[in-house]
Structure formats: structure tokens, C-alpha cells
């Protein structure tokens, strides 16, 4: 993990414009990612995790216009301001994507085999026949039984877990260098979640891919990520190696998230220790620290000026809370 980073994100700010509103779900985010490394982006729903990864690659739903500023360098190519042609040539080939809901992400009217094979055919420049063989290999690789029959099946004939395996097969079909997984286990049964996560880690190790894992589940972070980036209201709260951030959080929001995880020694029936309050509604950028209204440690002045992300007492960890890290 000493090589040059393959992904360098710097001061990434994204404004989303829709028919009804304008919001800024991503505000000055910076991070780097190396080959083989996994970065988890953590936050509550609506904190801008997904947009951070998808908007710079031009993957926004119809009816949403993303204004992206800052810089996203992928293997030396600047993505911010790049044309659709450039972005498309990267998607699928160099960067693979896994979506949250495997129920709706697969095309209901097409055979699974075709949906996998077309990626290989397009990006690896192989014949349709070879692509089909590759699809078969991939089906086996993601651990599905009876691969030959699976190729001819349609998504509605599979369970959620199997569909997510298909989605993984699609995302890695062209051997990308970076995999973006958006809540890959959220929509699945608890028992299946662990299997899918293990599969992802396995494949990542085998292909030496970098991975961005978007999640709100601290358990997933602990199990899969090398480093973690905690987002709150579109801003970075804390960044650092997983083992350090989870053990000794240095931002009140991270502390709250970790504190909310149920523990083995909790008395049965004890009160749930969630974060009180709700995340702010996105809109105009909030003056000062966005977490102030929910923060136990807030002092006068927190709401006045925006706290910068600073190196903490541990040089590997950065946090945006001057109150706890003075």
C-alpha cells in the first residue's frame, strides 16, 4: 500500500439542482485511495455519501443536475469538468459500481448472462462467445450454484442475495481498478449481509482493487474498511484508519455513531443510545459546525465559524472539532 494513490479527491463540492430545490450535499470533501485499499464513507442517510462517489462520474438520476467543483483525479485523469465521453470510458472499465438495491438495479426484462457478458464484451474487446464464457466464470466466482442455468435466468427468479452477487459480477466483469459499493448489504437479509461482505473482500484481494464502501453500518466498517471517512451534512467530520477511529473517535459525531451500536454487556431492555435529534435538512450551507445543535460538547462559537479538518493528537487521524482536539 505504498504506491501512488489511484484516486485523489480534493475540495470536492457538489450542488444538486432539481425542479424543486437546490442543495449542497457534498461540501469540501478530500480523500485519497491506494490500490488494494478500502475506504468506508460513513454517515446517516442524506449526509451526501452516495453523491460524493456518483456525481463526479456523471451517474445521477434523471431530473437531477449536479454542479461539481474541486478536483477528482483518477489515475491522473481529472474527472471534474471532463466530458461524458471520458467519464463513460472509465465507467465499467476502470471503475465498477454496486448499487444499494439489487431488486431494482438489474434489468427485469433481460437475462442475467447478457447483463454480465455485455460489460466484458464492451470493455475487454472480446467476442460475444468469449464474453459469455467470461460471464460463466464470473457467476462461479461470485459463488452461485448451477452457473449454466443461472445465465439464462431473469432477475425476478433470484433472491436478493443472489441478485447482489450478480450485481457484483457485473461490476467486476471488466476487472476495474476501483470498485464503488453503495450500501451493498443494506437491502439484504441479515444472514446474507455477512456473506456478501466476505465475498466483496475476497474479490477485492484477488483483483487487488481499491474500494470505496458507502455505508451507515459501523459493523460493516469494522469488518471491511482500512480507513474510514465520517460525513455529516455533506462535510467531513473525521478521517483516519478504521482501528483508530472506531476505538478512539475524536469527533463528537463519530462518538455518537459508535456509542449507538448495541453492546453485548447492555442490560436487556436498556435504553437505546441513539443520537438525539435529526440531521439538518440540506439546503444552503450551514454557518459554523453543522453538528452544533446535536452536540453534547458544543461551546459558544461552534455555530459561528466552520471548523477546519485538522490533524489530531494522533497524526494519522484528522477531525473537524477544535473543541475536543485543541
Amino acid at each position: 500500500m505504498t504506491a501512488e494513490p489511484i484516486l485523489i479527491v480534493k475540495d470536492l463540492t457538489i450542488d444538486l439542482l432539481t425542479a424543486h430545490t437546490a442543495v449542497r450535499p457534498v461540501d469540501s470533501i478530500s480523500y485519497q485511495l491506494r490500490r488494494g485499499e478500502t475506504l468506508a464513507i460513513v454517515g446517516e442517510s442524506g449526509s451526501g455519501k452516495t453523491v460524493t462517489c456518483f456525481a463526479p462520474l456523471g451517474l445521477m438520476p434523471v431530473g437531477v443536475k449536479a454542479d461539481v467543483s474541486g478536483s477528482v483525479l483518477f489515475e491522473g485523469t481529472e474527472l471534474v469538468g471532463a466530458n461524458e465521453e471520458t467519464l463513460r470510458s472509465l465507467r465499467g472499465k476502470s471503475i465498477g459500481f454496486i448499487f444499494q438495491d439489487p431488486m431494482s438495479a438489474l434489468n427485469p426484462a433481460r437475462r442475467i448472462g447478457h447483463q454480465i457478458a455485455e460489460v466484458a464484451e464492451l470493455h475487454l474487446g472480446i467476442t460475444p462467445r468469449a464474453a459469455e464464457a467470461r460471464a460463466l466464470d464470473l457467476i462461479k466466482m461470485v459463488g452461485m450454484s448451477d452457473p449454466n442455468a443461472r445465465l439464462k435466468q431473469y432477475p425476478h427468479e433470484l433472491s436478493g442475495g443472489l441478485r447482489q452477487r450478480v450485481m457484483i459480477a457485473i461490476s467486476i466483469a471488466a476487472e476495474p481498478k476501483l470498485l464503488v459499493a453503495d450500501e451493498p448489504t443494506t437491502a439484504l437479509d441479515v444472514t446474507v449481509q455477512a456473506q456478501i461482505l466476505r465475498l466483496l473482500k475476497e474479490i477485492q484481494a484477488r483483483m487487488d482493487m481499491a474500494m470505496v464502501l458507502i455505508t451507515h453500518d459501523m459493523g460493516v466498517v469494522a469488518g471491511a474498511a482500512d480507513r474510514v471517512l465520517v460525513m455529516y451534512a455533506g462535510r467531513q467530520a473525521e478521517v483516519g484508519p478504521t482501528e483508530k477511529v472506531l476505538v478512539a473517535p475524536r469527533h463528537p459525531y463519530t462518538m455518537g455513531l459508535i456509542d449507538a451500536i448495541p453492546r453485548r454487556d447492555d442490560a436487556i431492555g436498556s435504553r437505546f443510545r441513539g443520537l438525539s435529534g435529526l440531521p439538518p435538512i440540506l439546503g444552503a450551507p450551514i454557518k459554523g459546525c453543522a453538528f452544533t445543535p446535536r452536540c453534547r460538547h458544543s461551546v459558544e462559537g461552534c455555530g459561528a465559524q466552520r471548523p477546519p479538518l485538522r490533524t489530531t493528537a494522533d497524526p494519522a487521524v484528522m477531525a473537524a472539532c477544535p473543541v475536543l482536539n485543541a
Binding site: L59, P61, V62, F99, L106, N107, P108
Partner: peptide, 16 residues
Amino acid sequence: AMAKPYVLTARSKGLS
């Protein structure tokens, strides 16, 4: 159809 999630998936594959 073009507003459906599976089209976003297709675009993430790099298809035209």
C-alpha cells in the same frame, strides 16, 4: 424506462 434504476446501472457499465 430511462428514469428507472436499471438504466443507472447500465450507465455505470459504460454503455452508450
